[in-house]
Simulated scan of single mutants.
Amino acid sequence: MNLEPLRAWLESLGPDIIVVALCAARLLPMTFLCPLLGGQATPTMVRLALVLSLSLFLRVEAGVVLDAPVTSAVALGGLVIRELLFGTSVGLVAALPFDAARMGGRFIDLLRGTSAEASLPLAGSRESAAGEGLYHLLVALVVSGGMWPLVISSVLRGFGVVKLGAFVPTEAATLHVVLLAGAAMATGLAVGAPIAAAVLTVDCFLGLASRAAPQVNLQEVGTPLKILGGGALLWLGTGVLCERLLAGVLSVEGALALLGEVAR
């Protein structure tokens, strides 16, 4: 049996396999970080299948190529590390609005005193109910609305802006990601600020009432009042909070475009 045609065919596929592998190296961190590409809740096999499918699409349909040929295994390893770093940066930026929703919910539950660590010590879960609720609500709104294609197209357009092997981990790119992370933390605090103000107002009122009438025990009233009042305010302000978080999702496109400009 003559294996020379098969060997020649496999050798001709070598550059295509390298391109697919580099695309997969960039996409892999994104699927672990960005919930719109799977996130940590998606099974590993599903994420790997998605990475392979998108990598083949980028090579076959989008025409993504590697400008310079790979001459050694060391050069290939360096390119893979670059793509992993850039994919991690893109995944972090794309996931920041959803992390802001989770941080805001945890901040709310921390002040209300209704976190899972305090109310469900035997459940084995260390998640915040409000944090997980806002996080999944934002994901559902983005996927069901028209913003999911916007974010995904912004992520995939990065292959045209920053070509394979062209990423340079500059100081400007690092500062850009750090500033975006700080803005996401500020958004999370802004989401929880109204409930925090309400909880602090209740504490102030109970403190003044205790000083005015020390014979009345108001400590047992404070916790239920903060839980119920904060929950009611959260329920009434969910629409406003979602609008603030969706504005962060809309800004992902510009943030990724700027990241591509400073990272090449």
Rank of each mutant, 00 (worst) to 15 (best):
E11G: 12
R26A: 06
G207N: 11
I195D: 01
K226S: 04
S115C: 09
Y135H: 05
Q219L: 15
L36F: 05
R264W: 13
L56T: 03
A49T: 05
A198H: 10
G63K: 08
G113K: 08
V142F: 05
M185E: 09
A257V: 15
P169A: 03
G105A: 03
P214N: 05
L52V: 07
V74Y: 10
V252F: 11
L28V: 06
G87Y: 04
T174F: 14
S119P: 00
E117R: 06
S53D: 00
A173G: 09
E171Q: 12
G158H: 08
E253D: 15
A186G: 12
L134G: 00
P224S: 09
V80D: 00
A255Y: 05
G192P: 07
L250H: 10
P5S: 13
L134N: 00
V70L: 03
L22V: 09
L206K: 07
G229Q: 02
P121G: 02
S128V: 01
L234M: 08
A181G: 11
E243L: 10
P29V: 02
T31Q: 03
C242N: 00
V177F: 11
A101E: 01
V65Q: 11
I81E: 07
G254L: 15
A68V: 12
A255M: 14
L111K: 08
W235N: 00
L225G: 07
S89N: 09
S53V: 08
L233F: 02
P214W: 04
L256M: 11
V46K: 03
V46N: 00
V202Q: 06
P69V: 06
F159M: 08
E4P: 12
S119I: 14
M30L: 15
R102V: 01
C23D: 02
S251E: 14
G77V: 06
H136A: 02
Q219M: 15
G14V: 13
A255H: 10
S72V: 03
V221N: 04
